[in-house]
Amino acid sequence: MPATQPYAAFVFDAYGTLFDVHAAVRRHASDIGPDGPRLSEIWRNKQLEYSWVRSLMGAYQDFWALTEQALDYALAATPSVDKAHRQSLLDAYWKLDCYAEVPQVLKGLKARGAKLAILSNGSKAMLESAVNNAALDEILDDVFSVEDVEIFKTAPPVYDLVATGYRLYPDAISFQSSNRWDIAGARKFGFRTVWINRAGNPDEYLDFTPHAVLPDLTKL
């Protein structure tokens, strides 16, 4: 490994960090109408809420089931949106756009000798589809899914999937996520953490601060 490379692995959250979670609704914006952004926000928020609640209850369902349930709630909460769009929105979620800088950044990190991986709440099938759609399958070394531990982030066993899988101490791993709560969980576990604050949100979880904050992945 080059001397300039301080981390053995760079690990990325998938949804919101590499892949744009709002791309599915935006793709059908003209059909959905002006309440599309609200629909998309509710969909995402409920998807995450369901993962946290089920983790606390010990009642795991895979992320795709939660994604479907969250969309059903979002459609019920935005009655102006025709429910006939449900299937087209779900289909689009399997092929979310990746952010523009992602392929180049990942290729650059790989050239520096680091292992590259995803660590995600997503099901293995969802992640495989997203990775292949974005042509990242030949760049990434591994994709870690919570399916293997049947609990969602921020549970420590999720982050341990990478440390154990790569047989590395946590501080040898740089973890990048756009989700501040995810950064808090990864920092607590011991990863070096980089918050990709794409939305310019205020900081929180101040007892588990990120090691770095970036507006996108470009400066990694």
Rank of each mutant, 00 (worst) to 15 (best):
P2I: 08
T4R: 09
Q5S: 13
Q5C: 12
P6A: 08
Y7C: 08
F10D: 14
V11I: 15
V11E: 15
F12N: 01
D13A: 04
A14R: 11
G16M: 07
T17H: 09
D20C: 04
V21A: 06
A23W: 06
V25L: 14
R27C: 07
H28V: 03
P34D: 08
D35F: 06
D35R: 05
S40H: 02
E49V: 02
R54I: 04
L56F: 12
Y60H: 03
Q61D: 01
Q61I: 09
A65V: 14
L66A: 09
A70V: 03
L71W: 12
A74W: 01
L75Q: 02
T78C: 11
T78W: 07
S80P: 11
K83H: 15
A84L: 14
A84Y: 06
H85G: 04
Q87R: 10
W94E: 01
L96T: 10
D97N: 13
E101I: 04
P103S: 01
P103I: 12
Q104H: 15
Q104R: 12
V105N: 11
K115G: 07
S120Y: 10
M126Y: 10
S129H: 15
V131E: 08
N133K: 13
A135H: 15
D137Q: 11
D137L: 01
E138V: 11
I139F: 00
D141C: 04
D141N: 13
S145V: 12
S145L: 14
V146Q: 00
E147V: 07
V149W: 09
T154L: 07
A155T: 08
D160K: 14
D160H: 13
T164G: 15
R167K: 13
D171V: 13
S174G: 10
F175C: 02
N179Y: 14
N179P: 05
R192H: 15
R192D: 10
G200L: 01
G200H: 03
N201A: 15
P202I: 05
D203V: 09
E204T: 08
Y205R: 07
D207T: 10
F208N: 11
T209D: 11
T218W: 05
K219V: 13
